[in-house]
Amino acid sequence: MEGNVAVLSRGFSGFRRPQPPREIPEGQYYETGFPVLTYGPTERVSQSDWKFTIDLGEGGFKSWTWDDLMAMPQTDIHTDIHCVTKWSMLDSDWKGVDLDVFFEQAGLGENIAGDYLMIRSFGGYTTNLPVADVRGGKAYIVHEFGGEPITQEHGGPVRMIVPHLYFWKSAKWVESIRFMDEDAPGFWEANGYHMYGDPWKEQRYWGD
């Protein structure tokens, strides 16, 4: 916004409806609900249709079904979520599987081909991430929110969460991962949104 020199808004004090229990990133407000944001209709994916695939390159793939997901070691995740449309949801609870476990089961270990990845969802949504941002307990494939199955509007039956980045990086109805040598824009990134999206640096749009 024109550098960082703020224009004072005459007569605006701001009352920060409900006060957040701790600091949230600049430009965000504390939301006690869970707004839905999708650029199109809600995708209808059933548990039996859901399948998650990692493209291993050179024609190799590894896939997991809903039952496979259930059989994997589960993690409870307690985290804050920051959406680029300005709301922040604090202390949300999710249950799912650390992406590292998928990489391990795919036999990838440390030798991942490429520094970036493209996440794809049922319905065609895509978003790009650096590999380093999904390793070491930073990204999860989740199926429960607040102790309940994730509803379809919120990306159920299975979505991804990458809580340290703006929430558009957390793909709903997650379907696959493909590795890339170079960074390439996903859906929102091609539409003016930041390639990385760190809420604490307010990386909302191109040029931030």
């Binding site: 916004m1 703020a6 004072l8 605006f12």
Partner: peptide
């Protein structure tokens, strides 16, 4: 457009 309001104490609110 995103609108940003700024209070005298620096507090800001943004909406679309």
């Amino acid at each position: 457009y995103d609108v940003r309001l700024t209070a005298p104490d620096g507090y800001q609110a943004q909406r679309s």
